[in-house]
Design a protein around this nucleic acid. Structure first.
Lengths: 333, 333
DNA sequence: CTGAAAGCGCTTACAG
DNA sequence: CTGAAAGCGCTTACAG
């Protein structure tokens, strides 16, 4: 232990290892990288022993320079504080680590910089691949399609893109969430969520209503934030004809919504029933506990990493099925 | 735009820039790094122009190899999904970016690896500094003290260490939170939080009680998680002599606590009043909204980055004052 | 199976 | 103020 400490100051290099093991530096690389050349078992042992004794750690910068690619994957996300993205980033970090990769996460909600800038910055760091959890402009799409490294878009809605993309089946998930509400007998069910025409959750909400022969209820567009949900909740609570139930497009929005309803003295689910989307931890401890549409975050994370590792994945969209987690906010129990 | 794209494939290097500008590669470095040598204004212009025209981005790996240090700062955190750490990491990323640095965040809650391993991995990446938001063992302390790069510990409790450390004034913050509860007239006030003897929040709770001539109330030790808070809440709710109020050592624990109290049919603050600690966004949208002790996350983040940049900061602890944010869970309004 | 050597793209003394 | 050149620590054809 203390050996290792004193030694680290002078930085052990591959040359030291080679000298100690009595081999060339090339051979050290061969054993550490398992190739590209075979190494005799005994030589291999000597090298591994030298590595251990000297406490050698390969210099990642040198490796990245030499290979033209580091073992890091870049990750672009709007705001890693958002509980859903926090969990998604964590799952991606896990999946990456399992493949010996490290995630470099960058938030795009920063001022004085653009997504394009951040992508360029990331590529200048020689990242081996890039994951983007954000909606891209046409210019940004063109940029990532020609980046020269694997790119995968995550948390995406269906739609054609020039790179592999994946996301939960938003439309189907929303439809089933609303069907559940319909099953409770509620006949006026509001939608609270993004104004983006790409977001299929609003369509799924409409699907369920239409299939049940119900009119489309109120539609409140709100940003994906606590505050967005809160404002929407106030609007909903104060509406002349208050909906009997609401589908919230994210857990965070739903938590904001609950706060607003409580502030207005409304009970959930007795006055307004709620079902949300995401399946974050926070939903379980909301009050009341939220019935929510769980996204398979770990699976999506693993698939995203797999696509990056493959490197030559087909462009196109992959939908992941969701699962309704029933708790009390919808009126069950 | 499309120029830049087609060009990126072949990777523009500093040599290309030098050739285009009609100078040596050294001069390109001098202008890009503002030193170490002065450059004539006109030469400088030519270089900057070449950089722009060619869409040149310095290779970070080459730079890190050459300098022996990258522009990344490493960050070790138990679990970046925890709302408090999510906000802290975000603030640190902001502060780092403002200084032209990038944060590489690593979670220590991973299996099959140790904090020491992760620290070594980070240093092998040539990080320019390391921030640790975790309690260290003696061995880990010895390790970071001899790392050869600036290290700062954050979210720490007071105590002597061989490196700069900072954290909210836990004891004072907890004391004031509990004083607020005392001010409401509650005479039995429980503590819900960490079992760690390093965590001064329990001491602060005791300070306030003692100062008010009140006996120490129930003390429920729980892990820092929703579930930890929930279990503690069940225990509290079912106690033979249920406390009239509780101080929760984190917002996340408090949210779990609220869920348990509601599950037991108890009202907050009417049956049990609650004050918590952290000041995360989630506290504002809890039900009822949580009165909480806000940590100055942005300030602490900026200071941590500043200490890293300084490089030669004095070891020792820096306490940051907290601020009580009054909302409804304590009984106010 | 092993080694000598070129090369990755920077930085920075050293010399002019 | 500018440049030629060594060096950072790896990887990987190329030769043996």
């Amino acid at each position: 232990m203390s050996d290792e400490h004193t030694r680290r100051a002078r930085t052990v290099t591959r040359a030291d290892v080679a000298r100690y093991a009595g081999v060339s530096t090339a051979v050290v690389s061969y054993v550490l990288n398992d190739g590209p050349k075979p190494v005799a078992p005994l030589t291999r042992e000597r090298v591994l022993d030298a590595v251990k004794v000297l406490g050698y750690r390969p210099n990642a910068a040198a490796r990245a320079l030499s290979k033209g690619s580091s073992d890091m994957f870049g990750m672009l996300v709007v705001d890693s504080r958002n509980p859903f993205f926090a969990q998604l980033c964590h799952a991606l970090g896990e999946a990456a680590a399992q493949d010996g990769r490290t995630l470099l996460i960058v938030n795009t909600d920063r001022e004085h910089t653009t997504a394009a800038d951040q992508i360029h910055d990331l590529t200048a760091r020689q990242i081996g691949g890039l994951i983007i959890a954000d909606l891209l402009t046409a210019a940004e799409q063109a940029l990532v399609e020609n980046l020269g490294i694997p790119v995968v878009l995550i948390n995406q809605y269906a739609g054609a893109v020039g790179v592999p993309a994946l996301g939960a089946d938003f439309r189907d998930g929303a439809r089933r969430a609303v069907e559940h509400l319909v099953g409770h007998g509620y006949r006026s069910i509001a939608f609270i969520g993004s104004a983006s025409i790409f977001d299929d959750r609003e369509r799924g909400w409409g699907d369920a209503l239409t299939a049940a022969g119900l009119p489309l209820g109120a539609r409140i567009h709100a940003p994906f934030s606590y505050e967005g949900g809160y404002q929407a909740g106030i609007e909903l609570a104060d509406a002349a004809e208050r909906p009997r139930a609401a589908f919230a497009a994210s857990d965070q929005v739903a938590v904001g919504l609950l706060a607003a309803l409580h502030a207005r003295g409304l009970r959930v689910p007795e006055d307004v029933a709620v079902v949300s989307f995401d399946g974050t931890d926070a939903a379980e401890y909301a009050c009341p506990p939220l019935t929510t549409t769980a996204q398979p975050m770990a699976e999506m994370a693993r698939e995203a990493i797999r696509l990056l590792q493959a490197g030559d994945a087909e462009p196109g969209y992959r939908a992941f099925p969701t699962a309704l987690v029933v708790r009390r906010s919808c009126g069950c129990e």
